[in-house]
Design a protein around this nucleic acid. Structure first.
Lengths: 333, 333
DNA sequence: TATTTTCCCGGAAACGATTCCGGGAACGGT
DNA sequence: ACCGTTCCCGGAATCGTTTCCGGGAAAATA
């Protein structure tokens, strides 16, 4: 079915070794004439290298995997595009795999990547994860890992994330400057590093500004639109006073705004809403949502740099890179 | 580094063959006791099958590739999720690859997939494609192909697409029922089957309803937000009268609406806007956009069904599946 | 001319699995 | 006691490639 190196060798009366050398550009050990003949024959016969065999033999693949939880969020699709193009410049190909925010899927996708013996993996962990044991398993496979965006604590791996602390700081500074005093913090799952970082920052900003910390203003919510809607609705029913909300993400913020508007509360006149990390959707909806912009490009650059370093020297100590991000003020605040 | 079948064999004093059989569940040719020993040892030693070797030996990979132009559009990310889960149910894994709407990328991604000897590929072609020759090349590789959503004409491959004709029909029926008479048709690139289908349908609907066909109402536009904005702006400047616009996609529609509103024209009171194929963004923006909903699930189902059939029997004649889609009426019309 | 170096190339062993083939042991039937 | 089955298992080939090793011929040096 496929034409192999052996076919070429037989047709040309050469050995497999020579053909392989000619094709791989080992110009020291094969005459120019032979190279020409082989290359010509290969092209004519429609030869295509079997990467499976190459990888098996070389025990590596010149490919890195990118494992993301989902693709709906523009951040991930952009990251993939950027990282892919950077990796390609360095001679690496990419295999994209999904975890669908699910532990089992994640494991199986990781399996796919390691089965194909990728030389490294860029991974953003899925949300509904119970423990980090599996990740140390993954890490135990000796395959270079770089966590990005959603990172895991206490794992001796390199990671790239955005500066959650500073992001929260800027966002809250902005709100406080607008005269807001009672700011609701919608927390995310706390095994995600980002989430805990934000929570810490939230508290420290309050004390910095001499504002009281009210635990009732901290609500744990799911990550999607209905979650935001539900939490804010129940908060409103409870009669608690608040004048601003900082959400975990855009969709949550959307739900918040809908809940507020449904209750006849004006945004941003009565209550300001802001989102950590928004995509273009933030600017499309009405009112458009004040949010933090992650620098996809820089994160991709760092992640690629780190994985390449790790591949080149697996013993290199892991490093954590933190990327600053900007707050974009829009109508909702 | 990795523990192999040979390691297990040596540790247990068995041959590689026996270990392989025990592990692959060939219970006829190996005693239960040996199976148990092998399985136990494999688990204890952390054995992981090298799929590369298996695929090399079996000459197939039990993997199918999904090649999409981009991931920003929710349609593709959803399609991938659906198709992936269906394929998994059938024992296939998936490799996702991107073309980034670029011919060169597409070729290289296709190369990646065929290098890895995937058993089949689901592909949605990229837009800025000059000719279809490359696709016949791809087809010549003897690897089963199924085109989905964006299909190519005149290629002996199976394909799955939505019913553009009927979609245009429903959308225009709706607009005409609303009293619209001069409907602008924003055309897409005509080498894409979807686009030409729509154009034909546009014309036939007009004659069906006894409306005049005005070539000036047909504008060729790019596929993104600024394109919609630009085209409608220039149309407005030209002074041509129209009371409705049917866009190629959601982003284009968004641009249209912005252009109209910028000119002080009300949507939908003065001009209705509708989009072929919208995602949730259509429902989030204000005014929300009337659009056609493609049935991602059904398309994924059909695509997977076709590729599996083609893999099982490469000689099976190609078939074209057309999937109906629904019009969702929102504020913009 | 004899010896060393250089230049190409072939043979063979890997890489890690599957699978065909055949053979020894145990077992039942005559 | 002999033969035919059945049950397990090992040996070896195979998938397509790379790469180490070594060898023969030509070229360069002594």
């Amino acid at each position: 079915m496929y034409v192999t190196i052996k076919d070429i060798a037989e047709k040309l009366g050469l050995s497999k070794s020579t053909v392989s050398r000619a094709l791989s550009g080992d110009y020291l050990n094969v005459s120019q004439e032979t190279v020409d003949r082989v290359v010509e024959a290969a092209a004519r016969m429609g030869y295509k290298r079997n990467e499976l065999a190459v990888n098996l033999r070389k025990r590596k693949s010149m490919a890195v995997g990118i494992l993301v939880p989902e693709l709906q969020t523009a951040f991930y699709s952009r990251f993939i595009a950027e990282a892919q193009s950077l990796l390609q410049k360095n001679g690496y190909r990419t295999i994209i795999a999904l975890s669908n925010e699910d532990t089992t899927w994640e494991k199986s996708s990781f399996g796919l990547l390691s089965d194909y013996r990728v030389d490294g993996i860029l991974i953003s962990v899925c949300h509904n994860r119970a423990n980090i044991e599996d990740y140390s398993d993954l890490n135990g496979k000796q395959i270079p890992l770089v966590f990005f965006d959603r990172t895991i604590e206490d794992l001796p791996c390199s990671s790239v994330r955005s500066d959650e602390q500073k992001a929260v700081l800027s966002l809250m500074d902005h709100l406080i400057a607008r005269g807001r005093r009672r700011i609701v913090h919608m927390a995310g799952p706390d095994y995600i590093r980002n989430a805990s970082d934000r929570y810490v920052a939230y508290q420290s900003v309050l004390t910095q500004h001499g504002l009281a910390f009210d635990p009732e203003l901290v609500v744990k919510a799911g990550l999607y639109r209905p979650d935001g809607f539900r939490e804010i609705s129940s908060l409103l029913r409870s009669g608690l006073f608040f004048d601003a909300v900082v959400c975990f993400n855009e969709m949550q913020a959307l739900g918040c705004i809908e809940a507020l508007q449904a209750a006849g509360i004006r945004v941003p006149e009565d209550v300001s809403v802001a989102s950590m990390y928004g995509t273009e959707v933030s600017s499309l909806v009405h009112p458009s949502i004040t949010s933090i912009e992650k620098s996809v490009l820089r994160m991709a650059e760092e992640a690629v740099r780190l994985i390449l370093r790790q591949i080149a020297n697996p013993m290199a100590p892991p490093s954590e890179v933190v990327i600053p991000s900007d707050v974009v003020i829009r109508e909702s605040s």
